[in-house]
Amino acid sequence: MIGIIVFCHGTMAQGMKHAAEMIVGPQPDFAAIGIEPGHGRQQVSDLLDAAIADTDTGNGILVMTDLAGGTPCNTTALKMGKGIEMLAGFSLPSLIKALLSRSEVSDPRELADLVSEYGRQHMTTGAQMLRACGPTELDHG
């Protein structure tokens, strides 16, 4: 099974892990790490190395980061290859999708593609959701 690391600013990763496990239950080979003010480049890199060691089952790892161009994303980009893949800008739907699909896909890059596409499709608005179910009493035009 592909390992999953969520890697974000502040405590978002821990919060996302908690939220995802409220929905799909406790998950193996799943780590959450966050950067804080006062962290330097080396410290952030060491944090990721430790999480990689914790979640590595030999089948590759997908690191899901919060923001393209942010430190979690940039730090992970430096470690890509050798079975480590990264995506940036993940959401709760995409994290749940990753957790539920990772045993059916063998390649972490394939998982990254599938999950990022899923995340893009699952950002919606109340109006779009109402439109999709036809006329309802919630519809104020």
């Binding site: 600013h9 962290h39 330097g40 480049r41 923001l67 161009g69 942010g70 430190t71 994303c73 940039n74």
Partner: peptide
Amino acid sequence: DNRLLHGQVVQY
């Protein structure tokens, strides 16, 4: 900035 180019710099 020890983190050089990162989220704060890119976004803000």
